[in-house]
Write a protein that binds this DNA or RNA. Structure first.
Lengths: 100, 100
DNA sequence: GCTATTGTTCGAATATTATCGAACTATAAA
DNA sequence: TTTATAGTTCGATAATATTCGAACAATAGC
């Protein structure tokens, strides 16, 4: 069983979150997770190589935006909405409300 | 008289704004402008070289966060609060509300 | 015109990041 | 045990950014 690093709320850094969200691929991952609740990596790859997606999911995970759990051979991802709202109230909502 | 590029509201991109704000130097510039209303470049340099600051102000300007106007030999900078609020309601407020 | 002040631009060095193939790991199922 | 599936990790390359000194530009004041 693989272990992932998920920072506690107190370690979530605004700069890291903003940086993670500033990439178009990652932003679109976050938007889809917001719409669909949760998803595997493969479901969101949009034809990109697995290693690229793995990189982006790692960035999202290590800055505290996404929580990944094992589910058989696949990894299920979901937004850490409550944690993000607690750390930076209104930030995720503002980002998700923006067009596109 | 120097001319600066300031994108119209419709050209302000979420990704660019998030990226600009993800840098600690630029974020601290934005925080100070939010507190003090406006400031020259020199007033916010914190001991850094002028060329470095000029770079950061350019990033902030070209993504639509800051408006720069000439004022004698100095350049006065202010946040484009209304424009940002119009493009991404609540985003700037959420960023500024975050600790530090 | 000369000088000081403010900031920009240029250029180069350094650092960081994104991308992606290949090899690897872990689980499930036959 | 063998095979398939889902992601991760590694390593290399290319693209982007940051940093900062030096040269330059624009304005103000003498």
């Amino acid at each position: 069983m693989r272990q992932f690093r998920h920072p506690p709320i107190s370690d979530i850094q605004l700069e890291s979150v903003l940086y993670a969200l500033s990439d178009p691929v990652r932003l679109s991952i976050v938007r889809q997770l917001a719409r669909e609740g949760e998803a595997t990596c493969a479901a969101l790859d949009g034809g990109r190589p697995k290693s690229s997606m793995s990189h982006h999911f790692r960035v999202l995970r290590e800055c505290g935006i996404v929580k990944t759990r094992n589910d058989g051979t696949s990894h299920m991802n979901e937004l850490r909405r409550a944690d993000l709202d607690s750390a930076f109230p209104g930030l995720l909502a503002a980002v998700l409300a923006a067009p596109n």
